[in-house]
Amino acid sequence: MSFAVDSLFIGILQASPLILAAIGFTLIYYLNGFINFAYGEGITFGAYFASLFNVAFGLSFYISIVPAAILSGLLSVATYLFVFRPAMQRGIKPSELIILSVGLSFVLRYGLILLVGAENVYMDEPPIEFFNLIGVGATSLQLIALILVAAFAFNLYWIIYHTGFGEKVRGLADNPELARVCGINPHEVSVKVWFVAGAAAGLAGIFQGVFALVNPLMGWNLILITVMVSIIGGVGSVRGALIAAVVAGVLTAAITLLTKPLYAEVALLAAFILILWRRGARVV
């Protein structure tokens, strides 16, 4: 019993950055239909933007979240406007768009290393209080992250499934030609979606960074599991990505409590390949 509670609680607490990253990734995948590896650099840049305001300018952590998330949203829009949109207009196939996104993530990641160096950066944490909930310890920071993530996720869920804008997004993803005929401006919708996705990536990076540390490879380390979670969660549904991210977090925590963390990763990766195989060609 206590093992189940432990792994559920630890899983949900640890999964909050993963949930955000998976939601943002799924949005782009849903709309444009390709795996965007450069999305991982949005996570890294979010953390670096936050540490710029937090460490270099000395702002409080909670205040520096806002401009950092906006900046990473703008970065995401820039990659869409200057790289992916021209590429898609030239008729480049999805499998080549993936390679393109790998190239772009190299440019961003190693450009960042050339600019600021590869050393670890530690953010100034806000004062932390410890809570004791149903026998498991949690910090105020973890709980605030969880609440923020929940608020973001429910907002987004509401927007996608219950507003006119969400209807436009779903329409464009399902049938771009029909959506265009109906008077939906694909450009405007895409820019907004890429902004929201980039902001989600940035927030994921900020929390990942304040829980542990900030370094240029953190986005790359998170992107693989993000891709896995989004694909297992049923691509193209924000609902599915939410559930899959929580389940993956809980599963990782459960396996980690039983064995070494590296075995947990191996088990997750192997499960991912088997799930892909069971689902057959209708994965994507």
């Binding site: 795996i35 499998s95 693989l224 896995m228 694909i231 990766l269 088997l274 892909l276 195989w277 994965v283």
Partner: peptide, 21 residues
Amino acid sequence: RLVLRLDAQGILCATIAFSAI
């Protein structure tokens, strides 16, 4: 045997997972 029936993006993810394993 496991991945070659998948489409391109599925193969890509599965092989990258294999190398991580």
